[in-house]
């Protein structure tokens, strides 16, 4: 419970930075920090395997992919981003506040009273492996097919084509 109370504010601060920073690279690095802190949270509440997977896939893969994508694209117009801050804040808050209110209402009203029981046992990795590769084999195969399709599709999308040299002025 104590680590939870320590890590939760850090996660929220990092996520706030990722959402609010005008510089894209800062936002992406703060996203990496947020994902790493969520992984630490998983480690402390007894889902160690999920925490490690989160570290490897999210922090090591997705966040770095986003940073690289930012590096090879041109940064956006920072001054314009800052200039439209007040309006985007107002519109964003107007759209997001009802969602937050609904979620918090559901959390405060919807939970059964007996959730204060002891925590369930921590994640047994061996049982997870058995579950994954004996009982959910079709799902694992489907994910394998999906990832192969994604690999081919992303390579097709991102490859250099002849029409790429078309000058932007001709638009």
């Amino acid at each position: 419970m104590i680590p939870l109370l320590l890590i939760s504010p850090l996660i929220l601060l990092a996520a706030l930075g990722a959402v609010w920073k005008a510089r894209p690279v800062h936002a992406a690095l703060l996203l990496a920090l947020t994902l790493a802190l969520v992984a630490v949270l998983y480690l402390t509440i007894g889902a160690e395997f999920i925490g490690l997977v989160q570290f490897m896939v999210y922090v090591g893969g997705v966040a770095i992919l986003i940073v690289f994508a930012l590096l090879i694209t041109r940064p956006g117009d920072e001054a314009a981003e800052l200039a439209r801050r007040p309006r985007s804040l107002a519109v964003g808050l107007a759209c997001v506040a009802p969602v937050l209110g609904l979620l918090l209402y559901a959390i405060s009203k919807g939970l059964p009273a007996e959730t204060t029981v002891e925590a369930n046992p921590a994640l047994p990795v061996q049982a997870l492996g058995v579950e994954l590769f004996e009982n959910s084999v079709p799902a694992v195969l489907a994910v394998g097919v999906l990832l192969t399709a994604v690999l081919i599709g992303a390579a097709l999308f991102a490859r250099e084509t002849g029409e790429a040299s078309e000058p932007p002025a001709s638009r």
Binding site: Y58, G61, L65, V143, L146, V150
Partner: peptide
Amino acid sequence: IAIAAAEAAVGLAI
């Protein structure tokens, strides 16, 4: 998590 990684890869490629 697996599907999120796939989604990020395809999204960034697009």
